[in-house]
Amino acid sequence: MPVLRQGGRFGLGVGLALALPIALAVGWEIAVDTGAASGRLLPPPSRIGATLFELAASGDLLSHVEATLIRAGLGFLGGAAAGILMGTAVAMLPLVRRICDPSLQALRAVPSLAWVPLFILWFGILETPKILLIAVGVFFPVYVGVSGAIGSVDRKLVEVGRIYRLSRLAMARRILLPAVLPATLVGLRTGLGLGFLFVVAAELMGASEGLGYLLVDGQQLGKPDQILAAIIAFALAGKLADTLFVVLTRPLTRWQDTVRESL
């Protein structure tokens, strides 16, 4: 019975959340349909849906999504790996921390988009600067998450490891790694979100495929329906990636007593 009631409350929540966008969409559809609005700059939902369907049917959408996902994925992997390595080094080695951390914190304050002109000068306009830009965006939240997590591992739990005479390797594997995992995953998740943010910026640099290209193309050819279709595709791809990340990593932090469980 409580399960049912919970299910009902969940359904009600979803319904409430969707009420506003659905009402707006239906309202706009009617307004354009009755001729009260032209819908030239803001096409009605039916036309956006049709464009999306067309793009999907021709296979174009898939190839654009694929291009975007490959860029975001490569940038995420590179940035996350660098962030984990640097974060670990800075947290474990005081000398490295004193040398590197101030500079990295200063670089963190630079808006990542500020690098775009420089990256284009250095690496041209093909894939390298795009992936690099995404990696830079992903790097910082992962770096901050990992170094902070290692720095705040409970000394008392490390002492338990000492009592049982764990070797350095065993201490890292059995105590430090599980202890830093939750914060690391939060950093990676934030990084993944930023990766999707920066893939748009990267593709606006000039690309011949990808969802960002669809945006630019739609602007230049005056096709707002294509722009909106690309935005919807972005939202779906980003949400899907985030959900996938949460589902895949949930078993790793099942032991935690946090609100995340109920999210």
Partner: peptide, 9 residues
């Protein structure tokens, strides 16, 4: 120890 210090994971 004074606290249980169990490993939560």
């Amino acid at each position: 120890f004074q606290e249980p210090r169990l490993l939560p994971w």
